[in-house]
């Protein structure tokens, strides 16, 4: 709710905010914060850079309570230097009682107004999930794969720094599902996430994030990525990372599983900035 209020407040003062074209080159999004230019950034926090990108991300939940591989194709772009749009569709292979199966997840559509004010980039907008498949499983975001749909109001901010960027995201949404346990028929989801993004050198960088979310299958998590932008291929980025579902390990997941470390999530993604 706080994030939503912040977003609304920022939107109301939009007329007073200098636009990207008015800002000095030091905060031009094509020049700084290389971590935000591609298709993916954090687990909850999304890339806010101008420009178009496509990406493929793999999320592998390994362990006794896992066995899920979710692939996600993402395409994003900007309109008029101030509106960011993205579409993302996951495809999962997962366990069922009779073995393994595959299926589509929920289409995710994002639309944001991008407002750049000094060294802070704000995103205000909405994220919509539309059910396309019947894949009854989940990774680390309740809305991603399990059939369901809904919409969230989102505020996201990034403060650009010399050594690293500070990231923040808040969202509040309402979602509906088929009501099959452990999912409720409908649920409100509030989420806050914070992170950092830093370039280590011209080729390498890191992103780290932690997020609290309720209601969610991963109430608290920490995640980190190491990235490389190979000089040989302009615009290409490869990342590998890990997500630690602390909340699930503590037994805070809405599933009926007791506390314990039974899964870990490895991530891998490639992206091409166009």
């Amino acid at each position: 709710m706080i994030a939503l209020c912040m977003g609304l407040a920022l939107a109301s003062t939009e007329a007073d905010i200098p636009q990207a074209a008015d800002l000095p080159a030091a905060v031009d999004s094509d020049e700084e914060s290389a971590g935000t230019r591609h298709a993916n950034l954090g687990h909850r926090i999304q890339a806010d850079g101008l420009g178009a990108a496509v990406g493929l991300a793999e999320e592998w939940v390994a362990g006794g309570d896992g066995g899920i591989l979710a692939s996600r194709v993402t395409a994003r772009g900007a309109i008029a230097g101030r509106y960011l749009l993205s579409a993302s569709l996951p495809f999962a292979t997962y366990r069922v009682p009779t073995g393994r199966t595959t299926g589509l997840g929920n289409l995710r559509l994002d639309g944001y107004r991008r407002i750049q004010r000094g060294d802070v980039v704000h995103l205000i907008g909405a994220q919509v999930h539309l059910p396309l498949g019947r894949s009854y499983t989940w990774t680390n975001d309740a809305r991603s794969i399990w059939p369901g749909g809904g919409v969230s109001a989102v505020y996201q901010g990034r403060r650009v720094g010399e050594a690293f960027d500070l990231l923040f995201r808040g969202a509040l949404g309402l979602y509906g599902t088929g009501g099959f346990a452990p999912y409720p028929d409908t649920y409100l989801q509030g989420s806050v996430a914070a992170g950092i993004d830093a370039d280590l050198d011209e080729q390498f960088g890191i992103t780290a994030e932690t997020a609290l979310t309720f209601w969610d299958t991963s109430p608290w998590e920490g995640s980190a990525w190491l990235r490389v932008d190979p000089r040989a291929v302009e615009g290409l980025r490869a990342r590998m990372g890990v997500l630690l579902p602390f909340g699930t390990w503590m037994g805070l997941s809405p599933s009926d599983k007791p506390a314990g470390v039974r899964e870990i999530t490895a991530t891998l993604d490639i992206s091409l900035a166009l």
């Binding site: 006794g64 899920i68 997962y94 366990r95 069922v96 009682p97 499983t137 346990a181 599933s255 009926d256």
Partner: peptide, 12 residues
């Protein structure tokens, strides 16, 4: 009650 219902609909 099935034993293996990890990350799938729960059969309560």
């Amino acid at each position: 009650q099935p034993l293996d219902d990890a990350r799938m609909p729960e059969f309560d």
